[in-house]
Amino acid sequence: MSPDLPPEPVFHDWPLPYEERLAARPRGQVDLVVIHCTELPDLAKAREFGERVLYDSGTGNSGHYYIDRDGSIHVFVKPDRIAHHTRSYNERSVGIELVNRGRYPDWLDSRRQAMEEPYTDEQVAALVGLLAWLRHEIPSLEFIAGHEDLDVSQVPASDNLHQQVFRKRDPGPRFPWSKVLDAVPLERIRP
């Protein structure tokens, strides 16, 4: 293997039942990676949420890659399909979900907006490896963003309809942006 080629990560293929119903796209259309956290207790719960059919097309919401706390990478949707993970950015992006509790189970409760679970060293190492590999596999890839950078909408808090909270806060304040950006040459965007 050439020293310029990043090693291919170990992937655990676990395609969603509706993956083939998601629109196909050329990889050259992808220029952005969006980092998420599942805001769920574990990978099994994330899978359950990903399998839920929410649209007339017979598809639901899901990222492409899920990285568990042990660093294992699970492929729910291949990057040549458009997954539903970030409003208005799906056609051009790959979604990577890191298993993390986030604000679970009170996502919109104004008293529980802290995101305290740290990301594991294994998750961060797996993410850096995946991003390096994706940069090689998808030459058009040049940008990275957190879900919270792209979806800044606010909604009424579940405990107080007169107070607004952010709909999305992931990957959140515990995400090691500097470590990831130092390791992989992607430009962080915040529209």
Rank of each mutant, 00 (worst) to 15 (best):
Y65H: 05
E91A: 15
G60F: 01
G63Q: 05
V77S: 04
A83M: 07
V99C: 11
E97R: 03
I73W: 10
S72C: 11
V75P: 03
N100Y: 01
R92V: 11
R101W: 09
F76C: 07
D70C: 11
G60C: 11
K78M: 10
P79F: 02
A83V: 06
V99N: 00
D80F: 10
V99I: 15
R103T: 02
I67W: 09
P79V: 06
H84R: 11
G102H: 06
R111L: 12
Y66P: 01
D80Q: 14
T86Y: 00
E91W: 13
R69I: 04
N100M: 02
Y66D: 01
S62Q: 07
G63C: 13
K78Q: 14
G102F: 05
F76R: 01
H84T: 10
I73T: 14
Y66A: 05
Q113C: 12
V75M: 07
T86A: 10
K78E: 13
R87V: 15
V99E: 01
E97F: 09
S62R: 06
W107C: 08
R101S: 12
R69W: 05
L108S: 14
V77T: 07
H64N: 13
Y66W: 12
V75T: 14
H85T: 04
Y66H: 11
V99R: 04
S72R: 15
R101E: 09
R112A: 15
I82F: 06
G60L: 05
R87P: 10
V94G: 06
R69G: 05
D70E: 11
T86I: 10
E97C: 07
H64F: 08
N61E: 08
H84S: 11
Y66M: 06
P105T: 12
G102E: 03
S62G: 09
Y65N: 00
Y89K: 11
S110Q: 13
S88Y: 14
R103Y: 10
H74P: 06
H84V: 08
R69K: 15
H74W: 14
P105N: 08
V99Y: 04
H74V: 12
H64K: 06
G60R: 07
H74F: 13
T86E: 09
N100E: 07
H64M: 05
L108C: 12
S110R: 14
G63M: 03
V75R: 05
I67K: 03
S62Y: 05
Y104N: 03
Y65W: 12
Y104R: 00
N61H: 10
I73D: 08
G63E: 01
V75S: 07
R112I: 01
R92M: 09
N61R: 04
L108W: 14
I67P: 04
Y65I: 08
S88C: 13
G95N: 03
G63R: 08
H84C: 07
R92Q: 10
H64A: 00
S93D: 02
R87M: 13
E91F: 10
R112E: 02
